[in-house]
């Protein structure tokens, strides 16, 4: 038997602890979300019914099962607030991801063209802001965007505007916040593919007479598509469910689904509707999630 095979046996045993942990704290909880999404709100502790009680005997359990219903999902589908929230979440996520790609690509491209020594430095520089707190970075922008904040002071001083512009509680503020927070997630996978690309390919294309934009469009961009895919998924999926950024930077007249879920849960204490909203969100994200997993798996398991 090869050393590799002998090594694999204890390595498999290492899976036990994380396996049990993830089943218990990741998989099983979804069962609870599903069950409670089929329950009704109740003024009780916990605030929903039926409550399954395994000690209550078979009859009670059967009655509890019979009390489950899909009313919450019907509510979600018929109430405009929720439908709009889902549509808005998707629109925001698509727009923000497109902006991220437009802004992130030139930066990643610039990084990949730096001399090797500087590439490592640039990569650290892109990662470091990611390490500083997410909430802090949003808060930093509130500082800048508020009524008498730095941005308005600069605009006024340059006579670009005659009155302070309202930035906070607008969609533009939200997009600035999202782009700012997710930029490293877009840049890093893009950079990873662009840096691996053979420069000879671009040189050959331009030697053969292709103008710059054609070299980019016909050679560079198609070859960077795996990175584009990873970056897009890495940003799109969490943005759909984003809560903090729209809550602090966007106006309160149109909500994203993460905000509605939060509101139902914390303000209205309607756990069943919040759970149903989570289930629908999960279903919406299922396809991109599966795509992302395949990509991640391929990247990590088939060598890089």
């Amino acid at each position: 038997m090869s050393a590799r095979r002998i090594f694999a046996r204890p390595a498999r045993l290492a899976a036990i602890a994380p396996y049990v942990w993830m089943v218990l704290f990741f998989l099983v909880p979804f069962g609870f979300v599903l069950k409670i999404s089929l329950s009704q709100t109740a003024i009780a502790q916990p605030p929903y019914e039926p409550v399954f009680d395994l000690m209550a005997g078979w009859g009670a359990l059967k009655a509890a099962f019979a009390a489950l219903s899909i009313d919450n999902f019907k509510l979600l589908a018929s109430d405009d607030i929720y439908v709009f929230a889902y549509v808005r979440s998707l629109i925001v996520a698509v727009t923000a991801t497109a902006l991220l790609l437009l802004i992130g690509y030139p930066i990643a491209y610039g990084m990949a063209r730096l001399p090797a020594r500087w590439q490592a430095v640039a990569m650290v520089l892109v990662i470091v802001p990611f390490w500083t707190s997410f909430l802090i970075r949003i808060y930093a922008w509130i500082n800048i965007l508020q009524h008498d904040g730095l941005l308005n002071q600069i605009l006024l001083a340059l006579h670009l505007v005659s009155q302070p512009v309202v930035w906070l509680s607008t969609d533009s503020a939200m997009y600035i916040g999202i782009v700012y927070s997710y930029l490293p997630f877009m840049i890093l996978p893009l950079y990873a593919t662009l840096a691996k690309m053979e420069p000879v390919l671009e040189e050959a294309a331009s030697d053969l007479g292709a103008p710059r934009w054609q070299v980019f469009w016909l050679v560079t961009f198609p070859l960077s598509l795996p990175g584009v895919g990873a970056g897009v998924l890495l940003c799109f999926i969490p943005i759909v469910g984003e809560f903090v950024i729209p809550d602090l930077l966007a106006g309160s007249n149109s909500l994203m689904i993460g905000q509605t879920l939060w509101l139902e849960f914390f303000t209205n204490k309607d756990w069943p509707v919040a759970s149903a909203a989570a289930i629908v969100l999960l279903v919406v994200l299922l396809v991109p999630l599966l795509l992302y997993e395949r990509l991640q798996k391929r990247q990590l398991e088939q060598g890089r």
Binding site: A8, A11, A14, F26, L233, F243, E293, E301
Partner: peptide, 29 residues
């Protein structure tokens, strides 16, 4: 260690799925 040295084992797909999904899963869920 299990994923990169364990070769094939039963439930591996579920295992890696459960590990990669939370990376992008919206935090509210």
């Amino acid at each position: 260690v299990a994923l990169s040295r364990g070769e094939r084992f039963r439930g591996r797909t579920l295992f890696s799925g459960m590990l990669y999904a939370p990376l992008v899963m919206p935090e509210v869920i």
